[in-house]
């Protein structure tokens, strides 16, 4: 009996924790060694209190696209770093959804500072939608500064999530109709300003602060 216990203890000590508790999705879609390495990164993120689902999803994407192991690990590390950066920018009290949305924005090319300013603009409010809209605008070729400026301008003007989503739709439509992405974003953001708060009024300072406002 003692021998059996000792054997079990040895096994537990030798097999890395990551391999013992590997996510079943990783275990079935990646080879054992890669799955263990990804799981190690997942465990590290979890110990830091970061959301782990994006890391698993990134590894599964790599598996589906038959990417080399190093590329998968590199992408997972980049995702993990983005999650950490997003939390640092948005604050420790940020929700998991906000951190994931913030990481998406950072990976899309949005500057970390834009996340900090967005948090300051909407203290105590959920930032998931503004962050998702921000990332989406960048995806639609709106320059990162212009996209950040549009979302910040709209948020400072008191736009709700539904307003931001509507703004995004209109920008998308304008771009499809041939408008320059930067111009479409700025014009639609100004459209959310209260009547009378046109450029030259009080809200103008907010536009100016981003460096993309009118002269």
């Amino acid at each position: 009996m003692r021998r059996l216990v000792a054997l079990a203890a040895t096994f537990v000590c030798l097999v890395p924790a990551s391999a013992r508790g590997a996510d079943p999705r990783l275990a079935t879609r990646l080879d054992a060694e890669t799955a263990a390495q990804v799981q190690h990164l997942v465990d590290a993120a979890q110990s830091q209190g970061l959301p782990t689902e994006p890391l698993i999803s990134k590894a599964l994407e790599g598996a589906a696209k038959r990417a080399p192991v190093e590329r998968i690990l590199s992408a997972v590390r980049a995702q993990s770093a983005a999650l950490g950066d997003a939390r640092a920018a948005l604050g420790d009290s940020s929700s998991a959804s906000e951190i994931v949305a913030g990481a998406g924005a950072l990976l899309a090319g949005v500057a970390r500072d834009s996340l900090v300013r967005l948090r300051a603009t909407r203290p105590g409010q959920a930032l998931v939608v503004p962050l998702v809209v921000l990332a989406d605008l960048v995806t639609r070729k709106v320059p990162t500064e212009a996209a950040a400026s549009a979302v910040l301008t709209a948020s400072r003007a008191g736009a709700h999530d539904a307003d931001l989503l509507r703004m995004r739709e209109r920008i998308e439509r304008d771009i499809a109709a041939g408008a320059l992405p930067a111009n479409a974003a700025m014009l639609r953001a100004r459209g959310l300003m209260p009547t009378g708060a046109a450029p030259g009024a009080g809200k103008r300072s907010a536009v100016r602060a981003t460096g993309t406002g009118p002269p």
Binding site: K65, R71, A75, S97, Q125, V129, H160, D161, A162
Partner: peptide
């Protein structure tokens, strides 16, 4: 584009809209 083949993005609206 982490793995050499481009992907697309969709934004499914209504994300926690306030």
């Amino acid at each position: 584009e982490d793995f050499g083949s481009a992907s697309s993005v969709i934004l499914v609206a209504g994300v926690g809209s306030s």
